[in-house]
């Protein structure tokens, strides 16, 4: 099963490297990779190297990392909050990041010497952390740990506040195609990924996979709720804090580089559970795999479907995600 998962991921990535505005035969893709890894690549052209190694590979690996992170965070948060609709943006990360991004893109505040795309990433990350802090502050104010109910409500409240700010800024101060640029940022894109950003994302994915897997059994203990987890010896409040903050941090990292890509974190855990069962020792790696494969294909479609234009990847994951979600709801036994 694990072998099959790895093979399917590698095959998806290879096909993704070959497809695009200009198709490169798989054999030439292989030649580029072999040459770059120190082998004899036999007559690789500069254009082929540019296309496969410099442009597509960081993007494809970035898709693997972002997809894995989002799906892992979805699985963790669905368990922690016992809420099937929990997704990585539950704690206000996406709306906070949008506030940061919009502030830079529309108002031009804080660009100070940074390259525009770096400024947006930095502002998005900062906005995500600020929103997270506010959500946690509201959620923890009652003093009863981080109750899932309060946390979800706080997340919703902060999201509305952020979206109000975003709308006001875009409507009042947006010039030219500001609205279009903001909308396209919020739907996410992997087009901006280069090796530097991709390495950060891969590191985030590796940390998330290892860290969350260490919590697999403690997440299982939340199956029957927090009282039951506590009676099984799990320090519930501490576990919630650690995992919620960790999911928000890695999610914020993906949002900073790739914008808000919806539905992956919500849907993938639901998709893999029927395949591998409900224990987190299986659900977590399977979700990482599913998110990675889904996003590699979604990104390939995003850059190949329409000539000379990128389809927003967030729109593609939603197009795929909504029917799957409806199917899941329809077949789910009523309990």
């Amino acid at each position: 099963m694990a072998t099959l998962a790895v093979l399917s991921l590698v095959a998806s990535a290879a096909v993704a490297l070959a497809l695009g505005s200009v198709d490169v035969p798989l054999s030439r893709v292989l030649a580029v990779l072999v040459r770059r890894l120190g082998g004899d690549g036999g007559g690789v052209t500069v254009l082929e190297d540019q296309l496969v190694w410099q442009l597509r590979l960081p993007r494809v690996l970035g898709a693997v990392a972002v997809g894995a992170v989002l799906a892992l965070c979805g699985a963790v948060l669905q368990s922690l909050t016992r809420n099937d609709l929990a997704d990585p943006f539950l704690l206000g990360v996406s709306s906070g990041a949008t506030v940061g991004a919009v502030t830079v893109m529309v108002l031009g505040i804080g660009v100070g010497g940074l390259v525009a795309s770096t400024a947006v990433s930095t502002a998005a990350f900062a906005g995500a952390l600020a929103a997270l802090a506010v959500v946690l502050l509201i959620a923890a104010a009652g003093g009863r740990g981080l109750s899932p109910h309060r946390t979800v409500l706080a997340g919703v409240a902060v999201a509305y506040l952020c979206s109000a700010y975003t709308s006001v800024v875009v409507i009042m101060h947006g010039e030219g195609d500001a609205a279009r640029r903001v909308l396209s940022w919020t739907l996410g894109s992997l087009a901006g990924l280069r090796w530097e950003s991709t390495l950060v994302l891969l590191a985030a994915a590796a940390v998330a996979l290892v860290w969350f897997s260490a919590y697999a059994e403690r997440l299982d203990a939340f199956t029957f709720g927090e009282v039951s987890a506590l009676s099984l010896g799990v320090p519930v409040t501490a576990t919630r804090w650690v995992l919620m903050v960790a999911t928000a941090l890695v999610t914020a990292t993906t949002v900073a580089y790739a914008g808000v890509i919806g539905f992956v974190g919500l849907v993938v855990p639901h998709l893999v559970r029927p395949l591998v069962g409900h224990r987190h020792v299986a659900v977590l790696p399977a979700s990482a795999w599913g998110g990675a494969v889904l996003l590699v294909w979604a990104d390939t479609a995003a850059r190949s479907l329409v000539d000379r234009q990128e389809v927003p990847i967030g729109a593609l994951t939603a197009l795929l995600g909504v029917p799957v979600l409806i199917w899941l709801m329809a077949r789910r036994p009523r309990t």
Partner: peptide, 8 residues
């Protein structure tokens, strides 16, 4: 102690 998670 209810759940929607389908563990065995």
């Amino acid at each position: 102690a209810a759940t929607t998670t389908d563990l065995t």
